[in-house]
Every structure is written in structure tokens, then in C-alpha cells.
Amino acid sequence: MPNAFADKTNPGAGSFGGGSSSGSDTSASGGREGDTLTSAVSGAVIFDRSKNGSGQSAGAVTSATSWTPPACYYAPKYTPKELSAQMRQVWESSAPSHEWALKTQNYFVNGEPYKDFNEDREGEGYWWDAYVTKGREADPGAQDCDEMPFWVDEGDAPPANVPQAITSEMLAQLAYAEIRVPSTKVDLAPQGASKVNLPTWVWLDTAKFKPVSVMASVPLLGLSATTTAEPVSLKIAPGTDDAVTYPASGECEIRNGKIGDPYAKGKADQTPPCGVEYLRSSGNGSYKLQATITWKISWTSTTGQGGNLPNGTFGDDQNVVVQEIQAVNR
């Protein structure tokens, strides 16, 4: 993780700031109240997951493009007294080198550019520092937030030259990483083994596939954003080239809240709106049919801003046994 306080001439010296905590969840002093995570760190991002997908089969969506949420960001982290107490403790220890201690003392105490940690401005603003997004500690992008902590007056915007400073859109992106959606295990007919050259109907229980959302916020700033995922289509991959899909693209759109149609007696001669037809037996094994739901991702915020983020996908495999139709000679 980046550490703006680290003594470059004495690795390991200094242990505060510069992304030293994963603010997109909780600090060690945080906790949980129902489905909402809380943090004692004043500027940490907290999440309300009460409208998220749940259950053992739920999983995280993956961006359909190469886009990923930010690995680090800046937000309020310390009051003047908190930062002063922590830094003075470091300076009094035997770890920091003289060069590093002098550099940071000049920066925070001696007016280059701050004076006495701005302690005379207690309650008028906060020291902003870096947070690393939970689960992204090893990501190279987590090293991008390597600025020294900086002061922001309460109610003011952070400096324009700090691109990773938290915004409503960044909150939406962080919430994206917390989205969980239901399993994509599909229903198949006929039940049991499928038959060569006969359509296998595919459908999903649409009651499970309702929009889900996560809200991310920095209460200290009165800033929040809600990211919502809504299912739009089901993609079928038969698991073999010896198959055709219905429709030919394998993309089954969600129409009128339905993903495919359940098979019913009397439909044997019909073409399923969503399905697969295997052209060769799976022999003594099975094919891995993959069903992937595409989710449209959008966001809104307390600032009135909003828009779309890259679509997300979540898929799962299931084994399909395909047998030859047995002919009976009389």
C-alpha cells in the first residue's frame, strides 16, 4: 500500500497515513449495525447493503470492459489533534531517520506549508489522507495515492490537482464493487438428460432477478451515491461447438420481466425463445453449459449527478448430459 509517511531512507519507519487503512469498509474501531457498515474513522466510506443481493449463491458482478473501480482515494481522515498526536508519537520513537523526521516536521509544524498541524483551526476542517479500497491492497493502482496528507476547510472542495479526491461518482464506483447478484443456475427441460437434435428449453426464475443496489457515503461530507444493477439479458454458452442456440446469438433478452419460457406439455414441436440444441452426445461425460446474466449498472447521488457505469456480468456453469435418442425396432 502507498505510505506517504514512509521514510524512504529507512523502510518501515512511519506507519500513519498514505493509505494505511482500507477506508472502503471499516477501520479496526469500526463495526456493523444491521446491514450498514460503520466506521470510527471520520472520513471513511461506509456502505448500506440492505438492498443488495444476498445468499450463498450470490456473487460479484464483473465489468464487461476493462474498467475497474478506483483502488485508492482521498477523504477526510484526521482532526488536527489526531494527526498531531500520531505524528509526534512517531517522531519520538527510534524508527524515523533524521532526514525524514525533519521533512515531515517542516511540512506539518514549521510552515512548509502548514503550521502546528493547524491545531488552531480545530473544528474548521480536516486532514485528508489516502484510503485503499478493500481487496485492492496488492493492486498497482493502490500506489497512485502517495501524496502527503493535506488540509481542507470544512465545506470547501479538495484541491483540483488531486484527481483521486473522493467525489459522488467515485462513491458510485466503490459501490459498484460491492454489488452482489443472484446465481445464474438455469432451469432446463427436458429434466434429466437432454437429447441429441431436440431443443432444450432454458429459463430462469425471474422472481430472483430484481434490481439490487448499494449506497456508498461519506457522512462527514454529506455525500452519498447509490449504484443499482438491473438484469437485461441472459447469455447461453452450450459448452461445445456441436450445438446451436435459440436465439442464434445465444443472447436471451429479458422481456416483460421474463427470461425465457418454462417448458410445458404440448410445446415439444415448438422452438424455445431461449434454449440450446445439442448435435452430438456427451458420451460418458457432460457438457458445461454456462449461463451469464448481463446487468445494466446506473447511479444517482445526493449532488443530483448520476449516469451509467459499464455493464456487469455474472455467470455460472452447470453440467448437461446429452444422450442419443434410442430407437426401438419392432
Rank of each mutant, 00 (worst) to 15 (best):
G239M: 01
D261F: 07
A229S: 12
A243E: 08
C274D: 03
E277F: 09
Q270Y: 08
G266I: 07
K208R: 15
K258P: 00
A264V: 14
D241M: 13
L223Q: 12
S224I: 00
G239T: 05
E251C: 05
V276C: 06
K265S: 13
P247T: 01
S217H: 07
L221T: 04
L220I: 11
D269Q: 15
P238I: 00
S233K: 13
G222N: 09
G260T: 01
P231L: 09
E251V: 15
F209N: 10
T271Q: 15
Y278C: 08
V212T: 06
W203T: 06
V212Y: 06
I254T: 08
I254R: 14
T245A: 00
V276N: 04
T245P: 07
K267F: 13
A248K: 15
P272L: 01
L220A: 12
K265H: 10
K210C: 05
I259T: 09
L204H: 08
K267S: 12
A229F: 12
V218A: 01
G260C: 00
G257W: 00
A243V: 09
P219R: 12
T240L: 14
I259G: 01
K267Y: 14
P273T: 05
E277R: 15
A264I: 14
V232H: 10
P219D: 14
P262H: 13
I236E: 01
E253L: 12
V232N: 11
Y246C: 08
A237T: 15
Q270C: 09
G275P: 09
T240A: 12
P247R: 01
V244P: 07
E251G: 02
M215W: 03
V244D: 10
A225Q: 04
G222K: 08
G250F: 05
L221S: 00
V276F: 04
A243T: 07
R255C: 00
V214A: 00
K267T: 11
L234T: 01
G250W: 02
S249G: 06
G275D: 02
V244M: 10
S217F: 07
I236R: 01
F209A: 12
L204P: 04
W203V: 03
